[in-house]
């Protein structure tokens, strides 16, 4: 597929389907985020970037053999590890061991029925502060890269460009 607009639209559809899958896996909060951010804002940003650059991909000049070997090798290594992981959905999985603890503590300690909210903002407040700072930093970096118009940049030479 050489037209990059099609890639933007397909990735939007993919995000929306990922949101549905995540909803089936009991994570409505994540599904809401993925649908709003991945399928909505992300597509707008990709299309905006395509408007500023080029909308067509030039045909590849390298063969696809080496990337395929790398991808297949990675897949083989990962598949080798799968059999040692706990089965899907088993309540005795080590991953889910702490879940009942959070769920039992949320209402007595914070009065919040949505455990995702209480873990996000209270039990893991530092984590979320860090994520907010990352979003802030990325926003500032985008503004630094794109705020100055190309015409003005040429005006004051190539310094800092």
């Amino acid at each position: 597929m050489r037209n990059l607009f099609a890639v933007a639209v397909l990735s939007s559809i993919y995000s929306f389907m990922m949101a549905s899958v995540v909803l089936v896996l009991d994570a409505p909060d994540v599904a809401l985020t993925e649908a709003a951010v991945g399928a909505g804002v992300g597509t707008v940003l990709i299309v905006g970037a395509l408007y500023l650059t080029k909308t067509d991909e030039s045909p590849p000049i390298h063969g696809m053999f080496l990337p395929l070997v790398v991808a297949a090798g990675t897949a083989a290594a990962l598949l080798f590890g799968v059999s040692d992981t706990p089965p899907f959905g088993d309540p005795s999985n080590p991953v889910t061991a702490l879940g009942p603890d959070y769920i039992a503590r949320s209402i007595p300690e914070t009065g919040i029925p949505n455990v995702v909210s209480s873990v996000l903002a209270s039990y893991r407040g530092f984590d979320t502060l860090g994520e907010t700072v990352v979003i802030f930093t990325a926003g500032i970096a985008v503004l630094m890269l794109l705020k100055r118009s190309p015409a003005r940049r040429r005006g004051d030479g190539d310094k800092g460009g």
Binding site: A27, V30, I46, G99, I103, V116, V119, D127, A138
Partner: peptide
């Protein structure tokens, strides 16, 4: 109930992912 902690981690990761994509 399903485990809430992965949901928290991923929900912040999605928003951070879109910021880094931008």
């Amino acid at each position: 109930y399903s485990h809430p902690l992965p949901h928290v981690l991923i929900l912040t990761a999605i928003v951070v992912g879109i910021a880094t994509l931008a």
